[in-house]
């Protein structure tokens, strides 16, 4: 039949998503690697190119929409979460990616951030955490460790920092993962998981700001120390780490603890097995809280729990009302309540 339009097969490549804009991030910035990872992931998702929307707020990370050859919205500082919610609710067909940083999402946007997580629309949030304000050139952020000496804290900060994972899980988040900007393969794998998850998925990227906060994640990312300080979590696998793969995490009483396999009668069987899918967020929040030097940093998908998305619930409710309401048109509406017909 001649009037059938053949749907073209999706054969997208990395090239399709590369923008022709000059990338204006500092040489050596972690943003470049994250961009590469996202360019790797997008063509593999089976989503038509025109259905991607990249949304951002303000900050270095928020230049991202310019550098992806997709639709994009550059919004207001801290408000990308609300903006992304709007995009997704209005058109649930779109694959919505919100790009944000620790300043944008944890400081000025802290409010919108916890509310998008709580509502759970199916959007993907990439949170670049370099623990500093880079775009305004080096002031402390809400994730800067206590005592951080920056341009606006020359004597060191005296504020307790946020841990984004704790905030996500505390806000009833269903998906939280963490990656490092030094591992494009890990980023690509986890971004794919985040994209597949139905609901708000938050991926924290431990990112280096080479100019204003260089080596802030060095313990976790540098060649010499990463093996002892990275625990890559996989569903159903024991939480084992270390260069010799001889260290693990156990639950002792109500706390997590690092143990050495083979010492004090500890065997692999004693090591906690990761279950990202359990509703109970207890272990998940403890995993998100782990930080060197006492613990390895938990990487990979820490929590991934199935749930209804916000747009499903909203649109189901709209459909339900359409079916069951006595009101079928504007006339019906005008003749309800305190209205009457003049005789």
């Amino acid at each position: 039949m001649e009037n059938i339009i053949e749907t073209p097969k999706l054969a997208l490549t990395k090239k399709d998503f590369e923008s022709d804009r000059m990338v204006k991030w500092c040489p050596g910035c972690g943003d470049h690697a994250i961009l590469k990872a996202v360019e790797n992931v997008f063509p593999e998702l089976g989503i038509p190119k025109e259905n991607f929307v990249v949304v951002s707020g303000i900050g270095c990370s928020s230049r991202f929409p310019y550098y992806m050859n997709t639709y994009g919205v550059h919004g207001i500082h801290g408000r990308a979460a609300a903006l992304a919610t709007g995009v997704k609710l209005a058109n649930p067909e779109l694959s919505v990616w919100m790009i944000t940083g620790d300043g944008d999402s944890m400081a000025i946007g802290g409010n919108h951030f916890i509310h998008v997580v709580r509502r759970n629309p199916d959007i993907n949030i990439l949170l670049f955490n370099n623990k500093i304000y880079g775009l305004t050139k080096g002031q402390f952020s809400p994730t800067s460790p206590e005592g951080s000496k920056t341009k606006t804290s020359p004597q060191g900060t005296y504020e307790a920092p946020f841990n984004p994972g704790e905030l996500v899980i505390g806000a009833h988040g269903k998906f939280f993962a963490r990656v490092v900007d030094t591992n494009i393969k890990m980023m690509s794998q986890v971004f794919t998981e985040a994209a597949k998850h139905k609901g708000t998925s938050v991926v924290e990227i431990l990112e280096n700001c080479v100019i204003f906060n260089n080596q802030i994640h060095a313990l976790i990312t540098s060649r010499d120390t990463k093996d002892e300080n990275q625990l890559f979590l996989e569903a159903g696998e024991p939480m084992i780490f270390g260069k010799e793969r001889d260290k693990g995490i156990v639950l002792r009483g109500t706390n997590l603890e690092v143990v050495k396999i083979g010492e004090n009668g500890i065997t692999e069987k004693d090591i906690l097995v990761h279950d990202p899918h359990t509703e109970d967020s207890g272990i998940h929040v403890m995993l998100a809280s782990m930080m060197p030097p006492e613990f390895p940093a938990a990487l990979g998908v820490i929590r991934s729990v199935k749930s209804h998305t916000f747009e499903e619930l909203v649109w189901n409710s709209v459909e339900h009302e359409k079916k069951t309401s006595k009101l079928k048109n504007v006339d019906d509406l005008l003749h309800t309540g305190n209205t009457w017909v003049k005789q």
Partner: peptide
């Protein structure tokens, strides 16, 4: 902080 006045707080 916001450019071009971040020097005030700094």
């Amino acid at each position: 902080p916001i450019t071009p006045q971040s020097e005030v707080i700094e």
